[in-house]
Design a protein around this nucleic acid. Sequence first.
DNA 1: TCTCGTTGTTGAAGCGCTTCGACAATCGCG
DNA 2: CGCGATTGTCGAAGCGCTTCAACAACGAGA
Lengths: 334, 334
Amino acid sequence: MVTIADVAQAAGVSISTVSYVMSGKRTISQDTKERVERAIDALEYRPHASARSLASRSTNVIGLQAPLRSGVDVHVVMEIVAGIVREARMHQYDILLLTSDDAEGLHRATRASMVDALLLMDVESDDPRIATLRELATPSVLVGLPRGAEELTCVDFDFEAAGRMAAERLIALGHRRVALLGSPREVIDRHTSYAERLSRGFLAACAEHDVPATVHQCPTTHESVRVLNAVLAEHPDVTGLFIHNEGALAHIAARAATIDGLEAIALCPSDIARTVPTLVDSIDLPAEGLGSAATQAIIALLAGESTPKVRLLPAVLASSRGASEPERAEVAGR
Amino acid sequence: MVTIADVAQAAGVSISTVSYVMSGKRTISQDTKERVERAIDALEYRPHASARSLASRSTNVIGLQAPLRSGVDVHVVMEIVAGIVREARMHQYDILLLTSDDAEGLHRATRASMVDALLLMDVESDDPRIATLRELATPSVLVGLPRGAEELTCVDFDFEAAGRMAAERLIALGHRRVALLGSPREVIDRHTSYAERLSRGFLAACAEHDVPATVHQCPTTHESVRVLNAVLAEHPDVTGLFIHNEGALAHIAARAATIDGLEAIALCPSDIARTVPTLVDSIDLPAEGLGSAATQAIIALLAGESTPKVRLLPAVLASSRGASEPERAEVAGR
DNA sequence: TCTCGTTGTTGAAGCGCTTCGACAATCGCG
DNA sequence: CGCGATTGTCGAAGCGCTTCAACAACGAGA
């Protein structure tokens, strides 16, 4: 294995000089710098991560708890993780995958100094991990917006604005009775906050326009079609649908397309929307961007920069009907 | 931070004694051992991962390259990763998530001594990473079975046996013309080996029974229904379908259920099969088990135990039609 | 009784890196 | 021309752990 001592010898300088060339924490003459860099390249030297972390007291690793099989929106989770990894690498950080959902994993990683910071996905309202996070005092960011996490940094998509936007779009299209076909029961039961925020925004906007609206839970399978049928049976005047359910989207959209006068818009990643041509519009769920944003927040935190406690990515309407330019919802904060 | 010195002091022993209590590499009296263990618990001591790895020259970390958005079988990928993480933790290993698909990431992680071993998913036939792996000489395991990786350890599901099993089951059900609706074009084009192995087994078994069979690529969307329609238009006598396509499964199964005499079986994780009630049978794709098996192989490698070069998990028929006990395909090796 | 092998414990030497304090060389200014 | 400030480089002290060699204490065999 090539060590810093080998590089120093090859370049004819001391070990500390090599270190300072790499970190830039001390001024080094151009000549020396070049000699050292050449030696590094020639030897393909990579500093030993553990040695560096032991001496510098930081690991350049971020611990991530991702829901690996919560059964919901696997696609979205994947993209978020992809965004996290990509952004982390851009800032010289690596991602350590912690077993999901147990506070013990957070403890372990932190106490053993394996990570500089923690990133948590899929956080529930009364998640025990929030208490652990507080106690550990490790820089951390939540992807999500649980209640009772006021002092923690949260990054999420602005589901409430997305709900409003969907309602307003359907109303602008002329619909006078609308329905939201949303997450499956499990998600609601787990008190994942996004479902609630989405329907709150949706219902609020409908109420403001005096348009009657209902919200329905949907299984993530073809069974969702039954829900749609039931909704239409009960409210035959529903003509506008807003779908937020990865697994059900295709089924519902396909069924809806067979019914005259019915129009559907959806909240989903844009590449998914593209596979469902019968949608009138879609609101983009920027999953990868969400991952990037969360990582950016963590990195700002680690750099000691001030970061807003809550950052919500704006909802953007990706109109398929030749809209001129995408509408943007406001960025919210608290 | 609590260090080993704190524990030693609290227990009234030397630092090395504490270390030996933890590693068990030296005999320690019962009395001393208990005192040290009490001190460890009381102080909630966790050895500093970097210090340990610097001194012991091993990290207890496995690097993982997982395809985070290849567009295929997100669900399966997720479950495999879940299996990997779970199994790794059982053996005191952690998982470092490397950016997918670049050989550079493998280099980095290895040269910087960040990982003890590498786990690669989604390996293509002429993957540049295979050369890198050879050059690095780091213990590694592939999830998949690429050609030209003879000296590397591979773990995969026995797709060929699954193909045979599906064919034989359809034939046993009385079908005299069958079709395999398989992976989307991209997967085939990337030379991912599993699609090929599956259809090889399927066609071979059909040929042995003199049952005509065809194989078709399927998009992962509702468009797959068109493929089904086209197949039926061309071969009206097809009555047995074998589906292997996560995204298309529900669509095809739903459409197939509307056609008299048509029966479908699928290859997919069992929890997915459960959401598609119109399937006659399904062959379980043990995604999580695949992850566990791959991790077990890595750990055996790290322990210096001998491991078979190739391990294929057997195909198991999960009959929905009151079968007595699940059939098993043979384990293959090379 | 003496010596030898066990058993249990310890001190100290690293592992490869960062960083502090020191120091020589050079520069700018009165 | 002399003095302090600046610039560039280095030696050495750790970071927290593992592990080797050494050693004290003790029982067993001669």
